[in-house]
Design a binder for these strands. Structure first.
Lengths: 276, 276
DNA sequence: CCTCATCATTTCGCACTGCGGAACAACTTG
DNA sequence: CAAGTTGTTCCGCAGTGCGAAATGATGAGG
């Protein structure tokens, strides 16, 4: 059972299609670290009854989102999932634009500079540039860090409108009721910091030995909200440097990216039916 | 309407969860080439009625698979889709193993060497190595080529068991009834070729000016079926060279990859709950 | 060879969920 | 203001998805 995954208080929401949500939950239980899963394990992780899983895995296999090894009776993510990811990536022009600027900063600071998008209550790295230092933290594209405890996550939250932010914070608090105080305080602080200076800090908040700064990255024309961070091991990146030097530089990177995507010639819904 | 996408003859299959399939169809209409889509356009492409689309997009947005721009009222693939793709990629050890061998061959042949997985009726490039020649064909990871007309696709089909192959060919034929003859003949030929020599040819079958060879790549322990190809513009890669030199070399690459993944320490269903 | 496990699939009747036509609302355009 | 878009909400009906229990399918142990 993956934290928030379950159907929860959806009952009564006539708009919400439960069967779809459950099916996607099945896909979601697959992690990068583990191999193929059997129906049993999937049932355990999703908390759904076995027959339901049978039907969902069957359907997902038919559609190519799962691949089935009949010898071992286990499933893995299939071509459909891959394809979806590729298409999603292709639409992320930000990455291309931000990449060189991020690398530049990473070299200067000798730190890790990341670009992330939100996925539920995590930030998902979609790009990451390492400095020359070998002791960099190993977060590759695809890894996730918690929304509420990391600099990147807080920057993202700060970049939202009030209307979007409130329910999101509610969710976070509901998931980590024990750390409510710390989290809320951290976020509020981040919001203030970003109003004032454009970036926020996380000094040992995500992991005790890691420091970082974060800045929101709101693309023009409602093309989405992302966030940048710049971080590394605490003994290399002192709070003072982050605050006085790296933070402001990160903000500049964000501004340059936004500028570069200014007139993005966003093609809209091209008529291109038929082709594979 | 995307070719085969619709519900079709699913009626009667008590095992198939339609609502899930429809929801995934919604995700599927997003292409790499086009920007965000409105409900209307999604309805048009899926062939589903508007209220249904409303509910599905609502659900998918809630779950983070779509992101919504309320200003323009359009959707794009969201963090969930990205995350799924990353996890799927992470489970593709093949890529890591095959990469250097593929590049080597690409350099020798001065051609494009690709590794693909199946997605419905296409082969999806998951890795691609270019030779030094600038005139290489531009197929990046994430692009798709048709299953029945390409060397890679035919090699994949040939790698299936009879039991798996027959229904798949049926689907292809149903999708392209006009070219039935050509396709079936091409596949049968490929099967024979691969039995005999381990690779198959496609001389101008996918695009008139493109030639290529393909070889199936069946991983041990039922870890999945993939396919390799080696191809390029016809005036550079003559049929003779492909048949006598590149084909056999491609087969060797496939064998080396299978060998290297021989004792793959395939971890099964590690207990790792809780983490983000 | 036959238990007794475990795990996956199938059955089946019922309730409720998802469906979609039609009406409604929110904006643009001429 | 009328005549187009577009997206959302209603609401009654039917059919779909549900899940407890039964049935298979493998495999381990005696």
């Amino acid at each position: 059972m993956d934290g928030d995954s379950i159907r929860a208080e959806r009952t009564g929401d006539r708009q919400f299609v439960m069967a779809l949500a459950r099916g996607l939950d099945v896909l979601r239980v697959f992690r990068a670290e583990d191999g193929p899963l059997g129906n049993q394990e999937i049932a355990r992780r999703t908390g759904l009854p076995k027959p339901t899983i049978s039907r969902l895995t069957y359907t997902l296999t038919q559609l190519g989102y799962l691949s089935y090894d009949r010898r071992l009776g286990v499933y893995a993510l299939g071509g459909g999932a891959l394809a979806l990811g590729y298409v999603a990536l292709a639409n992320l022009d930000v990455r291309r634009v931000a990449r060189p600027l991020m690398q530049e900063l990473a070299d200067i600071c000798d730190a890790s500079v990341g670009l992330g998008a939100r996925d539920r209550l995590n930030m998902l790295y979609v790009e990451n540039c390492e400095g020359r230092n070998v002791v960099a933290l190993r977060v590759a594209a695809g890894s996730r860090i918690p929304l509420g405890q990391s600099a990147m996550g807080r920057a993202y939250i700060a970049g939202l409108t009030d209307k979007e932010r409130t329910p999101l914070i509610d969710q976070i608090v509901r998931k980590f009721p024990d750390e409510k105080q710390t989290i809320v305080r951290g976020i509020e602080r981040a919001i203030r910091d970003i109003e004032r200076r454009g970036f926020c800090l996380a000094i040992g908040d995500w992991r005790k030995d890691i420091n970082g700064v974060g800045a929101p990255l709101a693309l023009p024309n409602g093309a989405g909200l992302y966030a940048l961070n710049c971080g590394g091991p605490g003994y290399l990146l002192k709070g003072k440097d982050l605050e006085e030097t790296y933070g402001p530089m990160l903000v500049q990177v964000a501004q340059k990216v936004v500028g570069a995507m200014g007139a993005p010639a966003r093609r809209t819904a091209v008529e291109r039916r038929g082709a594979p």
